[in-house]
């Protein structure tokens, strides 16, 4: 039996704990949005960390460890979890007006900051629910960009996508999010629907 005494930990274990483990909370935050489920999210993070540890010798020191970990986790999610998660409420991706929310907000009146008033009423949880309902392809780029602040190029590397695909998915994802948020706000009486 190995002694898990901290003094006797291998150099590998030490470097992994100082470089990779600090990103675990961020991994969990993103995993929660990807899986929409606490149990699956924890399993996903655990699986990703174990896989990362087993492959720690392949990580090049000095490169972006956070992106490397997200790439591992995203791959596991795509290959193992995506198929088993229930499919989200279907949204017609093609049917989005380019300036939907802007048009709606601008029509609410010329007084200042209609968007801030709307967002003050929307709760953190409402936004999370809205994100949860995005189709996976869009949700993943939105989460990696909005929550984790990865650059377009980093997201392309993490998800094995072309830069142009990242940009178009992010664009579409934003528009979907705005439409959903607006509909959600109307449904909950946060704002009145614009008369058409």
């Amino acid at each position: 039996m190995a002694e898990s005494n901290s003094d006797k930990r291998s150099a590998k274990r030490k470097s992994f704990e100082s470089e990779a483990i600090p990103h675990m909370e961020a991994l969990l935050r993103t995993a929660l949005r990807m899986t929409r489920n606490q149990g699956d999210a924890e399993d996903l993070v655990q699986e990703a960390i174990v896989k990362a540890y087993r492959n720690w010798d392949k990580f090049e020191p000095g490169t972006n460890c956070r992106a490397w970990l997200f790439r591992i986790m995203t791959n596991i999610f795509i290959n193992e979890y995506r198929s088993k998660s229930r499919s989200p409420v279907s949204i017609d991706v093609d049917d989005i007006d380019e300036n939907y929310l802007y048009g709606q907000l601008a029509s609410l009146g010329p007084e200042n900051n209609p968007e801030r008033e709307l967002f003050n009423k929307i709760l953190d949880d409402d936004i999370k629910k809205t994100i949860d309902e995005l189709p996976d392809d869009f949700k993943m780029v939105v989460v990696l960009s909005f929550i984790e602040d990865f650059s377009y190029q980093e997201i392309a590397d993490i998800m094995d996508l072309q830069l142009g695909t990242v940009k178009s998915r992010l664009h579409r994802g934003r528009k979907l999010l705005q439409k959903q948020l607006y509909d959600y706000a109307v449904k909950n009486g946060y704002i009145k629907e614009r008369t058409r």
Binding site: N99, Y102, A106, E115, F119, D124, I127, F146, L177
Partner: peptide, 20 residues
């Protein structure tokens, strides 16, 4: 300028709420 202003604040607010 109006579109930029609204889109920027929507993005910022969504980010703030998600990162909370």
């Amino acid at each position: 300028a109006g579109i930029y202003k609204i889109e920027e604040s929507i993005s910022r607010l969504i980010q703030e709420k998600l990162k909370h």
